[in-house]
C-alpha cells in the first residue's frame, strides 16, 4: 500500500529513535524502559505487537474505562452500558474492528498524529517531543506497552455494529 507523503519522516524518526536508543528506549537496551519502540509500516500500520504476551480484552475493557489510564470513554462511545456519559468528541467505536485491523488500531493508539497532525488524540505510548509534562508524569507513557496491547485486544472484540445506540 502506498504511504502518504508525510509519513516518511515518521519512519525515519522511528529509525533515529532506534539508533539513539536512550532518547525513547531501544528494545532490550534498558531493563524496565517505560516505552517500547515501534515501527510504522507504509504510513498506516504498526503491525508488530509491542509485547510478547498477547493482549487481554477483559483487562483492555478496564483500561478504556479507567480515568487514570486509557480514559477512552472521555471522548469515544463504546458498548459499555454500565458507564454513563460516554464522550462524543471523537468517533464512536462500535464496530471499530470491522473497520481497522490490529496494526491500524495500534498506530492510532501509539501515534495518532502520524495519520492526522491536527488530531486532538493523545499518543498513548510516547514520551518524546512533549512540552512541559506535569511533574510526576515525565518520561512515562499514558499506557504501558502491555496496556496498549490489552486495549487493542478489547477493541478487536467490537465487531457487531447492529447494537449501536
Amino acid at each position: 500500500m502506498m504511504s502518504i507523503g508525510r509519513t516518511t519522516p515518521r519512519i525515519i524518526s522511528a529509525g533515529l529513535a532506534l539508533g539513539l536508543g536512550l532518547l525513547s528506549g531501544t528494545p532490550g537496551a534498558l531493563a524496565g524502559d517505560p516505552v517500547t519502540p515501534f515501527t510504522i509500516v507504509d504510513g498506516y500500520t504498526v503491525p508488530d505487537s509491542l509485547t510478547e504476551t498477547p493482549g487481554d480484552p477483559e483487562r483492555g475493557r478496564k483500561w478504556v474505562i479507567n480515568r487514570k489510564l486509557g480514559n477512552c470513554l472521555s471522548c469515544h462511545e463504546m458498548p459499555i452500558p454500565e458507564e454513563q456519559f460516554h464522550g462524543q468528541t471523537g468517533p464512536a467505536l462500535y464496530g471499530v474492528a470491522d473497520v481497522y485491523d490490529e496494526g491500524e488500531l495500534r498506530l492510532r493508539l501509539v501515534d495518532p498524529k502520524a495519520l492526522n497532525p491536527y488530531s486532538m488524540m493523545p499518543s498513548f505510548h510516547k514520551v518524546d517531543g512533549l512540552h512541559r509534562v506535569l511533574s510526576g508524569f515525565e518520561g512515562k507513557p499514558i499506557l504501558s506497552a502491555q496496556q496498549v496491547e490489552d486495549v487493542i485486544a478489547y477493541l478487536m472484540t467490537l465487531r457487531d455494529t447492529s447494537k449501536r445506540r
Binding site: 456519559f85 464522550g87 493523545p122 512533549l130 509534562v133 506535569l134
Partner: peptide, 21 residues
Amino acid sequence: RGQLDMACTHCHVDHAGTMIR
C-alpha cells in the same frame, strides 16, 4: 503541552460544544 499533548485550541476551538464524558 503535557502528557496528553493537547493545546487549548483542540478543546475550545476545534471541539467546542462536544461532550467529554
